[in-house]
Design a protein around this nucleic acid. Structure first.
Length: 844
RNA sequence: GCCGAGGUGGUGAAAUGGUAUACACGCUGGACUUAAAAUCCAGUGGGAGUGAUCCCGUGCGGGUUCGAGUCCCGCCCUCGGCACCA
C-alpha cells in the first residue's frame, strides 16, 4: 500500500471529530498551556496557503505540548463584525448575517481539512448576540468607571468607508482598510480613555516575551517624553499685558491653570530641552491656537488671518505630502523668557501641532533642527547655549541637538544638559512659572462607527435625563435583522438612524421617550477581549467565570501577523488592564509570549485573490495533502521571516513524507525477531541509538525556539540515515521518528502509528503518547573528529579518543603525512592552540 | 532623517568565535523503461591541475584574534516601522 494522503487525511479527520479528540476539559490538576491564533475575519475569499502558515506553527507547538503532558487550550473563532464583512455583503447584495455564516462555514471547512487540533466546542463569533452582549456589557463597565465618554471633536473620517476611524487606523493620512485619504470632520463620538493607561502600557512591556520590534513600535506609538512645561508672560505688541478678563471662556479653559498665577495672559509651552531655554529667540503657536486673535496686532492682522485660513484648508488635504515646507507669520506680539527676561517674537507656524503638548513651543534654533530651518528662512536670531565636545561643529550651518555643556546661560553655565534640565525646572517651580511633566503621543481611542455591522452602543438619549446607559439586564441590544438597507449614509450618520423601530425607545431612568445611540462599536473592541472568553465561551450569566480564567489565562503563546503590532495588541492590552481594575481578571498582560510569523509571497508579491496569485489549499491538498503543506510551510525558512512560495520546492517535502511511509513498510516487512549477528551490525545499532538521542535533543530544543526549518532538516537527515541502511530498522527509531514528526505532519504519523499498533483502538492516538526523552549519556561520544589547522586553515582531520592528551595530539600531528608537508622544521612552530574536543591549530 | 531586521551557491537556506555552504529544490550524468512520469545512484561555489592537491571565496573597506559569515569601527544596498510629537 502506498502513501495515499487523501484517504488517510480524511480518515483521521473524521475519527478525531467522532471521538472529540481535541475537546478541552478544565482540569485544575493538570498544568495548562494556552496556545492562541489571532482569530480571522470570515473573508468571502476563503483562505489561501499563506494564511495557514501561522496556524501551522501554533498547531505544531500545541500538539508537542500536548505530548509533553500539558492540558491544551487551542481554540478558534471569528472576528466577524466590521467593514470587510459588511462591504462583502453590500457587494453581493446579501445580508451580512447570511454572508458571514456562509463564509465562516467555508473557512472552518478549510481549517478542518488542514487537520488543526482546534476545540470547536469553544468556537466564538464576535457578531453573535451571545458574544456581543458582553462587548456591550464591557462598554457599560467602562462608562460607569469614567473610561468611556462622548465628545464632539474633529475626527478622522474615511469618505469611502463613510465612517470615523481611530488614530491607529489612519496610516500616512489614509484609511488603513481602503487607502482613501481621510478627512477631518467634526462629529460627536464615543471615546475610550486609553490615555489613562499610557504609563502602564509602556512600563509593562518590559515583562513580556515579545519581539523587540513590536515592543518598540508600541513604545513609539504611545510616545512618552519627559519634559518641562512653563509659562511666558505675554505682551500685546511691544509693551501691553493682556488681562485675563478680555479672553473668552473657552480659551481661558483651554489655557489651563494659568489664572492661578496672575491675572494676565501667559503662553504655556512644553519642551524636553529646558536646558536650552537661554537660547530661545522666538515662540511659535500652532495655527489653530485660540490665543492668536488676542495676540495679533493691527499691523499684522491681514497677514495672520490669511495664514490661519490657508493652513486650515491645507492641513486637511496636504497634511500627508512629503514636502513639509515650514512656513509662518509674525503676530506683532512678544513673550518674555522667564529665565533671563529677554523679549522674543511670537510667531505662528505650521510645524507646531495643536494636538500635542500645549500647541505652543519655545524656539531654540541653535539646538533644534526644525527651529533652525525656520530661523534661517525668516532671518531670526540664533543663540548658541550648548557647547559640544567636538570643536569642529558649529551652529553656523546646523543645529547642534545633542546634550553638552551650557554656555550663555547665566547661573547655569558649565552645567551638563542633564543636570541643567533638573536645575532649571526646579528654578521654574520655585518661581511658580513651570513644572516637570510627561507628554504622550497616544490619543484617546475613538470607537464609534457610523456603520450597520457592529455591536450597537448601549446608550440612549432622553430629553429629561440626557445621556443614559442601558440596564445590564436588558443586554444585548440586538442589531435589527430584517432591514432592507444597511448601506452607510453620506451625512455621517449610521444607517441605524433611519430605523425608527430601533431608534425609538424608553428611557431606563424616567420611562419617557428616548432615542438610542445609532453608532456601532468598532470591531477592534470586540477583538480586544475575545481571548478571555475562550476560557468560558458559553457562559450566559457572566462574561466569564473567574476560576476558569485563573486556570487558563494568560495566553502562553500568541501567534499572528505583525500587522497587528499596534492596533489589536495595544487595544487588547488596554482591555486587560481595564478588566483587571474591574476585578474581572487577576492578570496584567494578556499574552505572555508573542510570535509574529512572516508572510508568504508568491510570484513576487503577497498572496491575494485580487492579484490572482494564490495557492488554493483545496487544490493543494488534493495533489499533495495537508501534511505536505504543513511540513513545507515550516521548512521554507525561518519562521519570523517572509518567504517565497516555490511550487517546485514542495516536492522535496512530499518525497520526505513518502520516505517515512516506506520506512514503516520496510520495517513491517522485515523479520523483527532476528538478533544482531555481525560486528558491523552491532556498531551500526549503537551509532543509530546515539543518532536517535541526538535527534530527539535537536528537535526538542529547536521546536521550543521556533526553529522548525532545522527541525525538519534534522528529521530528514534522520530519515535518510534509516532509509539508506542495509541493516534492519530498529523498533525505537521508527517509533521516535513518528513521534517527533507527528506535531508537524499529524495525519501520516497517526496512520503509521496505528499500522504499527494494529491491536489498539482508533480512540488511542499518537498524541496521547509522551514526547520522547533523550538520554544525555548516550549523546556523549567517545571519539571525536579532531581538526588539524595550520595557521587557521584546515589541513586534515582525524578521529581520536575523547580523553586524548595534548602530548598525544602533538605526536599524532608530527606523524601525519599531510601536516608534515606544511611544517618543514619543528623550530618553525611559534605556538600550538588546543581547543578541547574540537581542533588544534599550529601557528608557524 | 530616526529606529528595527537583513545581505552566504543557480534557488529556499544551515552554521555556541573553531571543518563555510547542512537540509531541500534545480541542474548534469547514469540505472530502470519501447518511451515518459515516478523511483534509485553519482556529481554539483569559482579558478588551476591528468591527479593527489592547491589558490580564491559569506555586500564593501579597515580592525581585534592563533582563528571572523559570526565580535568592533566606517560605508553601500534591500526590506519593514516611525516621521514636524518640541
Amino acid at each position: 500500500m502506498s502513501y495515499d494522503h487523501q484517504k488517510i487525511e480524511k480518515k483521521w479527520q473524521a475519527i478525531w471529530e467522532k471521538n472529540q479528540s481535541h475537546k478541552t476539559n478544565d482540569d485544575p490538576q493538570k498544568k495548562k498551556f494556552y496556545c492562541l491564533d489571532m482569530f480571522p475575519y470570515p473573508s468571502g475569499e476563503g483562505l489561501h496557503v499563506g494564511h495557514l502558515r501561522g496556524y501551522s506553527y501554533s498547531d505544531a507547538i500545541a500538539r508537542k505540548k500536548k505530548m509533553e503532558g500539558y492540558n491544551i487550550l487551542h481554540p478558534m473563532g471569528w472576528d466577524a463584525f466590521g467593514l470587510p464583512a459588511e462591504n462583502f455583503a453590500l457587494k453581493y447584495k446579501v445580508h451580512p448575517i447570511e454572508s458571514t455564516q456562509k463564509n465562516i462555514a467555508n473557512i472552518k471547512k478549510q481549517l478542518q481539512a488542514t487537520g488543526f487540533m482546534y476545540d470547536w466546542n469553544r468556537e466564538i463569533n464576535s457578531s453573535s448576540p451571545e458574544y456581543y452582549k458582553w462587548t456591550q456589557w464591557l462598554f457599560l463597565q467602562l462608562y460607569k468607571n469614567g473610561l468611556a465618554y462622548r465628545k464632539e471633536a474633529p475626527v478622522n473620517f474615511c469618505p469611502s468607508c463613510k465612517a470615523s476611524l481611530a488614530n491607529e487606523e489612519v496610516v500616512d493620512g489614509k484609511c488603513e482598510r481602503c487607502g482613501t485619504l481621510t478627512i477631518k470632520k467634526n462629529l460627536k463620538q464615543w471615546f475610550f480613555k486609553i490615555t489613562k493607561y499610557a504609563d502602564k502600557l509602556i512600563d509593562d512591556l518590559e515583562s513580556l516575551d515579545w519581539p523587540e520590534k513590536v515592543k518598540t513600535m508600541q513604545k513609539n506609538w504611545i510616545g512618552r517624553s519627559n519634559g518641562t512645561e512653563f509659562f511666558l508672560n505675554v505682551l500685546y505688541g511691544e509693551k501691553d499685558v493682556i488681562e485675563l478678563e478680555k479672553i473668552d471662556k473657552f480659551t481661558q479653559q483651554w489655557l489651563g491653570n494659568i489664572d492661578t498665577i496672575e491675572n494676565c495672559v501667559k503662553i504655556k509651552v512644553y519642551t524636553t530641552r529646558v536646558d536650552t531655554v537661554f537660547g530661545m529667540t522666538y515662540v511659535v503657536l500652532a495655527p489653530e491656537h485660540p490665543l492668536i486673535p488676542y495676540l495679533t496686532t493691527e499691523k499684522y492682522k491681514i497677514d495672520v488671518e490669511k495664514y490661519v485660513e490657508e493652513s486650515r484648508n491645507i492641513s486637511e488635504i496636504e497634511r500627508t505630502s512629503q514636502e513639509k515646507e515650514k512656513t509662518g507669520v509674525f503676530t506683532g506680539s512678544y513673550a518674555i523668557n522667564p529665565l533671563n527676561g529677554s523679549k522674543v517674537q511670537i510667531w505662528i507656524a505650521n510645524y507646531v501641532l495643536l494636538e500635542y503638548g500645549t500647541g505652543a513651543i519655545m524656539a531654540v534654533p541653535a539646538h533644534d533642527e526644525r527651529d533652525f530651518a525656520f530661523a534661517k528662512k525668516y532671518n531670526l536670531e540664533i543663540i548658541e547655549v550648548i557647547k559640544s565636545n567636538d570643536k569642529k561643529s558649529s551652529v553656523e550651518n546646523d543645529a547642534f541637538v545633542d546634550d553638552g555643556i551650557l554656555i550663555n546661560s547665566g547661573e547655569f553655565d558649565q552645567l551638563h544638559s542633564s543636570v541643567a534640565r533638573e536645575k532649571i525646572t526646579q528654578w521654574l517651580e520655585n518661581q511658580a512659572m513651570g513644572y516637570g511633566t510627561k507628554k504622550y503621543k497616544l490619543r484617546d481611542w475613538l470607537i464609534s462607527r457610523q456603520r450597520y455591522w457592529g455591536a450597537p452602543i448601549p446608550i440612549v438619549y432622553c430629553k429629561q435625563c440626557g445621556e443614559v446607559p442601558l440596564l445590564e439586564e436588558n443586554l444585548p441590544i440586538e442589531l435589527p435583522k430584517n432591514i432592507q438597507n444597511f448601506s452607510p449614509t453620506l451625512d455621517g450618520r449610521s444607517p441605524l438612524a433611519n430605523i425608527n423601530k430601533f431608534v425609538e425607545t424608553k428611557c431606563p431612568l424616567c420611562g419617557g421617550y428616548a432615542e438610542r445611540e445609532t453608532d456601532t462599536i468598532s470591531q477592534w473592541v470586540c477583538s480586544s477581549w475575545y481571548f478571555a472568553r475562550y476560557a468560558d465561551p458559553k457562559n450566559s450569566e457572566k462574561i466569564f467565570d473567574l476560576e476558569k480564567i485563573n486556570y487558563w489565562l494568560p495566553v502562553n503563546l500568541y501567534i499572528g501577523g505583525v500587522e497587528h503590532a499596534i492596533l489589536h495588541l495595544l487595544y487588547a492590552r488596554f482591555f486587560t488592564k481595564i478588566m483587571r481594575d474591574l476585578n474581572l481578571i487577576e492578570f496584567n498582560e494578556p499574552f505572555t509570549r508573542l510570535f509574529n510569523q512572516g508572510m508568504i509571497y508568491y510570484k513576487g508579491t503577497k498572496m491575494s485573490k485580487s492579484k490572482g496569485n494564490v495557492v488554493n489549499p483545496d487544490d493543494f491538498f488534493a495533489k499533495y495533502g495537508a501534511d505536505t503543506m504543513r511540513v513545507y510551510e515550516l521548512f521554507m525558512g525561518p519562521a519570523e521571516q517572509d518567504v517565497e512560495w516555490n511550487d517546485q520546492g514542495v516536492v522535496g517535502t512530499y518525497r520526505f513524507l513518502q520516505k517515512v511511509w516506506k520506512i514503516i513498510e520496510k520495517y513491517q516487512a522485515q523479520n523483527n525477531t532476528q538478533k544482531i549477528k555481525t560486528i558491523e551490525q552491532a556498531k551500526y545499532s549503537k551509532d543509530m541509538e546515539q543518532l536517535t538521542h541526538k535527534t530527539i535533543k535537536k528537535v526538542t530544543d529547536d521546536v521550543e525556539n521556533f526553529k522548525f526549518n532545522t527541525v525538519i532538516s534534522c528529521l530528514m537527515e534522520y530519515t535518510n540515515k534509516i532509509f539508506n541502511s542495509q541493516f534492519p530498522i530498529s523498533n525505537d527509531s521508527v517509533l521516535i521518528l513518528l513521534k517527533l514528526l507527528a506535531p508537524i505532519a499529524p495525519h501520516i504519523c497517526e496512520e503509521l502509528w496505528h499500522q504499527l499498533h494494529p491491536e489498539i483502538s482508533e480512540k488511542e492516538s499518537i498524541f496521547n503518547q509522551s514526547w520522547p526523552q533523550y538520554d544525555i549519556n548516550l549523546i556523549v561520544e567517545e571519539k571525536f573528529e579532531l581538526v588539524i589547522q595550520v595557521n587557521g586553515k584546515m589541513r586534515d582531520s582525524i578521529k581520536v579518543e575523547k580523553n586524548i592528551s595534548e602530548i598525544e595530539i602533538k605526536e599524532l600531528i608530527f606523524k601525519n603525512e599531510k601536516i608534515k608537508k606544511w611544517i618543514l622544521d619543528e623550530k618553525q612552530i611559534k605556538k600550538i592552540i588546543f581547543v578541547p574536543e574540537r581542533l588544534v591549530n599550529i601557528v608557524i
